[in-house]
Structure formats: C-alpha cells, structure tokens
Design a protein around this nucleic acid. Structure first.
Lengths: 146, 146
DNA sequence: CTTGAACCTCTAGTCGCTGTAGCTCCTATG
DNA sequence: CATAGGAGCTACAGCGACTAGAGGTTCAAG
C-alpha cells in the first residue's frame, strides 16, 4: 500500500543524510521505527523521505534537534495556530543575528592582530602579544561561545 | 619565591574561568600541574594566571584548544620567526569569515520565512512549509555545520 | 572546636553526530 | 546453485570543550 521499499542507503542518498545519522534519529525518536524485512533490515516509504528531508532542512537552517522535534509535532496539528512555529523561527533568527554580531567583532580583532604583525620574531609578534594581554583588545565583550 | 598562593577558586575569579574548566585544562595538559598543599589542594602563582588568561583569550577569539596549544609552545621560543602564529591567525580569520557568510545566508532565509508567515493556522504556515520543502529555499548551499 | 564554604576525585552528561568492529543479509554473476 | 561482495545490522567509543553531580576532605574564620 504505502510501498515501503527504500533501503536505508537509498533514503540516505535521497536526503543527503548519512546512514548512521538516520539510525541515530531513530534511536532518539526523531524518526519513527520503520518496517523490517524478514532479515531485520529497515525499509522506508515516501513519508519517511519527507520527514527526514524536513529534519535535515531544519538542521541546515541551524535549528537544534529539539526545535525540530517541536516543529514536527506542530505540523501534526495543522488546524492549530502557527504562533509557536513563528516564535521559534524568530528565536532562531535572533540567535543567528547575535552569532553574526559576535563573529563580526572577532573578525575585526583578528584583522587588527594580523595587520599589526610584521612577521618578525615571536618576541615581537602581535598575535602572541594580543593573546597574552587582554588589555590590548578593543572589545571586551567577546565572551559567549563561538 | 614565586609565592604560589592562589587557590583554584581565586584563579577562576581572576580569569573569569570556571573551576572545573581549570581542572579540565590541567587534565588535558594545557595547564601545568600546580603545587599542592599538604591537604592536596592546588595552589597557583602569577605565571598560572598569565597562562590561563592567554588560553581564555584565545578561546574567546574562537581558537580551538589545539591552536592555543600551538600558540603556547610558540611563545616559549621568542627568538623563532612568528610565521606560524601568523598563519594560524589567518586561518582563524578565514574560518570566522566563512561562518559569517554562512550565517548571513541563514539569516536571509529565516527572515523570508518569518516575513511570509501571516500567523494563521499551521496548515498555511510558511515556516513549516519551507522546512518541509527545500525547493522553496533560495539558497541551496546551506550545508556546512552552523 | 565547630561550622560551612571551598576544595578534592571520579564519573556521567551535553550536542549532533561519526567511526569502528564484527557480524549478517541480499542480490548479481558464474 | 554457489559464491562474492556490497550493503545492512548492533553495539560501543570518540569528538570538542566543557558542565554537572555525588560523595568525601580541607581550610580558615569565629
């Protein structure tokens, strides 16, 4: 009926996801347990392809698996308001924006460091110097994880 | 002589680093084993403060511990050319730049997703839709890890 | 001398996979 | 029909850089 005839390898190719990753998603309950052949091999159908593509796309957009789990359960209730999905997307946007800001300030500092290094001996190396002495930085606020 | 009289907690406060993290750095050989009191507690001196500050600053600039390990061994040989340090800093800058580029394209896509969502039901939610169908994305290239 | 904050070791957990070892299964060819 | 080998299976270890907790000990102030 639902012709579940894709092997895990086929599913992996279809969705550009590694085989082990699919098994991992199953283990943590993100992908449902598929049918098995008599010889215990997994067999998938189109619904699995769609679900895995959804997950992978979410990951590519930087959502953590937990957010994706929530998106998936939201998408199971098409009549409910999409407020929650919207909120999660906005939160992710915020997270992305703050990481960009953080990386921009790192970039500036690294550039400054590199530019001032005239390629002499370690003793005069600005790169090492700046690392050694935080006071030489312009930015005090590079604290959250990169 | 070198008055090693900072406790680990004091060192942690001094460098804005957690106590466990200091012990972890010692475990992986990034920080040297300090003196111990008769009661087996660690006692640190100014050189430890400097070294840990160096490490933390490197981390804040996004360098992996391995790069920091190299910086540290470079700074032990002040007469050698600083080429290697320079190269590492440039590599880090490149990494930062490519992460910024990647995040910028995520940002655009998230904004598009959010902007088109009119806040109705899940069934019409653009956020869910875009996640479900990769073809709705403009960017094909969001593949590397965030 | 007592209290309690800070220290100690050891272990396990985080996140999202990735890799390996040592099997079994499936299918295509001879 | 036998066999080869690619693909599948489970189970577990490892990555990076910490972080958290249990359960015990030490230190310094009062």
């Amino acid at each position: 009926m639902m012709n579940d005839d894709f092997t895990i390898g086929r599913l992996a190719r279809e969705t550009a996801c590694k085989v082990q990753t699919i098994r991992y998603y199953e283990e943590i309950g993100l992908m449902p347990q598929p049918l098995r052949t008599a010889g215990n091999q997994r067999r998938y159908g189109p619904s699995h392809v769609a679900r895995l593509a959804f997950i992978r796309h979410g990951r590519e957009l930087g959502f953590p698996l937990d957010a994706i789990r929530q998106f998936l359960s939201l998408s199971d209730e098409p009549d409910r308001p999409c407020e929650a999905a919207d909120r999660m997307a906005r939160a992710q946007l915020q997270a992305v924006e703050s990481r960009i800001a953080r990386l921009q300030s790192l970039k500036v500092e690294l550039e400054r460091m590199i530019e001032q290094c005239k390629g002499g001996r370690i003793a005069e190396c600005r790169v090492i110097e700046v690392l050694a002495d935080h006071a030489e930085c312009l930015h005090e606020n590079h604290v959250e994880p990169v």
